[in-house]
Amino acid sequence: MILHVNNVTKNFGGVTAIKETSFSVERKEIFGLIGPNGAGKTTMFNIITGNYEPSSGEVIFRNEMIHGLKPHLIVRRGIARTFQNIRLFSSMSVLDNVLIGFDFQARYSFFEAISRFPRFIGEEKRIKKRAFEILDYFGMSAFAHAKAVDLSYGQQRKVEIARALATNPELLLLDEPAAGMNPSETEELGNIIKKAREDFDLTVLLIEHDMKFVNQLCDKVLVLDYGKTIFEGKPSDAIQDSEVISAYLGDFHHD
């Protein structure tokens, strides 16, 4: 297993957002984290990415304890994420957005940048080439120099995933990637994620509300409710579980 969340609890003041939750994600799995609003899914994400520290419990990634590390260091260990509300850098082009993902991998110093040493030129060339490779993969090369936020919603989502992939992750965290998409866009996205898993050797952990999407995509799901695990297993079994159904009453997107 590539990620093991071990008995994690998270308290905010008097509120317990997550209570003694454990789960494991195997390599190359597409793992869904689902549950009604306020169940603690995004909090769990933030704990894995290092934005929050667990009040108790451990997060183990590739046999290393990563809870307590600074977020940007966790990224460099191989965990990348996207955001529910697509947070692309608004003043920058599509290409520059993706390049940001590569930047910690560019090996030149501040002074080499100022004086335009050969190492700077070489490294910039190298990461630009890699950035275009990823943009090509998503069919977005033509938009490289367009301002990222001028694109359509679906295109922006692709750029955001491309940007995350630029950091060369082993584990990709997607926060409600299908939010705001119509059925055909959602299906396309599902296929892209499946294909990327193969081509980039990824493990995917995603938060989703759309059960059809989850069914189509995920190998395993974990259902949270008020910070507690109420089901872990196959998605097709999840929708038949009585506890899950009662937790979701009214919250289901079920076709």
Binding site: N51, F83, F89, M92, L99, I100, T167
Partner: peptide, 23 residues
């Protein structure tokens, strides 16, 4: 350069910048 990109990323969205590995 990557430094300028990082600075602009911090300006545009500091949390997203951190999430992309920017110090």
């Amino acid at each position: 350069s990557k430094f300028g990109r990082a600075m602009k990323a911090v300006r545009d969205d500091e949390d997203a910048a951190i999430a992309m590995g920017v110090n």
